[in-house]
C-alpha cells in the first residue's frame, strides 16, 4: 500500500519541542541538586562552585524553558491547523469522537486509528495543554524564586503562592509532574510509533507524517 508524506509540524513547533524537552532534562537534574546537593566540597578554596554552577545552569535552562513555553502558546493561537488550541480539546463532535476512540485504542479494545487528523489525538492534545498550564505555574514560581524583590514578581508571587517557601514547594511538586509526564509521554509515543505507520517519532524531527494514499 502506498503512503504519502504530509506536513504536520512547523519548524517552530519542532524547535519548541526540543528546547522544551532538553531544558526539562537539565532543569530536573539541576533542580534535584538544588533541592538536595549530593556532593560535598571538602577542600576549601578549591575553586569548586558546584552549587553556583548548578543554579546558573538551572536559570539558563529556565529561560530556554520559558521561551519554549511562550512559543507553544503562540502556536496555540497562530500555528497551523494541527497546532492550534481548538484542535487539542474535545470541543467539536469530531474531537469528542477521537477522544473516546483514543481511549478504546489505548485499552486495546479497538484497533482503527482516526485518519482525519494529522496532529495529536485529543487525549494527547489535552495532556499537552495541561502541561503548558503547569509550565506557566512553574515559570511564575521559578521567576518569583529568582527575583523575589522585584516588584512584579513579588506582587504576583505573593498573590499566587503566598510565600517563597510555598512557591518552592509547588515548584518542587511540579517537577515530579514533569518527570512522570515525560515517562508516560515517551512510552506512548513509542507505542504509537510501533502500532501506526505515521512515523510519529521521526515527525518531531522532520515535521512530516505518513498517511495512506487515498
Amino acid at each position: 500500500m502506498a503512503y504519502e508524506k504530509k506536513k504536520a509540524w512547523s519548524i517552530l513547533l519542532r524547535l519548541y519541542h526540543w528546547a522544551f524537552a532538553l531544558s526539562i532534562v537539565a532543569l530536573c537534574i539541576t533542580g534535584f541538586y538544588i533541592h538536595d546537593p549530593w556532593t560535598n566540597t571538602v577542600a576549601e578554596g578549591s575553586q569548586s562552585f558546584v552549587m553556583t554552577w548548578m543554579r546558573f545552569i538551572h536559570f539558563v535552562a529556565g529561560y530556554v524553558f520559558t521561551g519554549a513555553m511562550l512559543a507553544r502558546i503562540f502556536l496555540y493561537i497562530f500555528g497551523n491547523k494541527w497546532e492550534r488550541l481548538p484542535e487539542q480539546l474535545p470541543v467539536t463532535p469530531r474531537n469528542i469522537k477521537n477522544f473516546f476512540n483514543t481511549l478504546l485504542r489505548y485499552s486495546y479494545i479497538k484497533d482503527d486509528h482516526d485518519t482525519d487528523r494529522l496532529g495529536h489525538n485529543v487525549l494527547a492534545g489535552m495532556t499537552y495543554v495541561a502541561i503548558i498550564v503547569a509550565a506557566v505555574f512553574q515559570t511564575i514560581s521559578g521567576f518569583y524564586l529568582l527575583f523575589p524583590e522585584i516588584g512584579t514578581w513579588e506582587v504576583y508571587g505573593v498573590m499566587i503562592f503566598g510565600s517563597q517557601q510555598y512557591a518552592r514547594y509547588i515548584h518542587h511538586l511540579l517537577m515530579w509532574l514533569f518527570m512522570i509526564f515525560a515517562f508516560i509521554h515517551l512510552y506512548l509515543v513509542i507505542w504509537n510509533d510501533i502500532k501506526e505507520p505515521e512515523g510519529l517519532v521521526s515527525a518531531i524531527f522532520t515535521g512530516v507524517k505518513f498517511q495512506h494514499k487515498t
Binding site: 569548586s48 562552585f49 558546584v50 553556583t52
Partner: peptide, 9 residues
C-alpha cells in the same frame, strides 16, 4: 559555603 557546595550533613 553554600555557593561552593560545602554543607553540614
Amino acid at each position: 559555603h553554600f555557593d561552593e557546595g560545602r554543607f553540614v550533613e
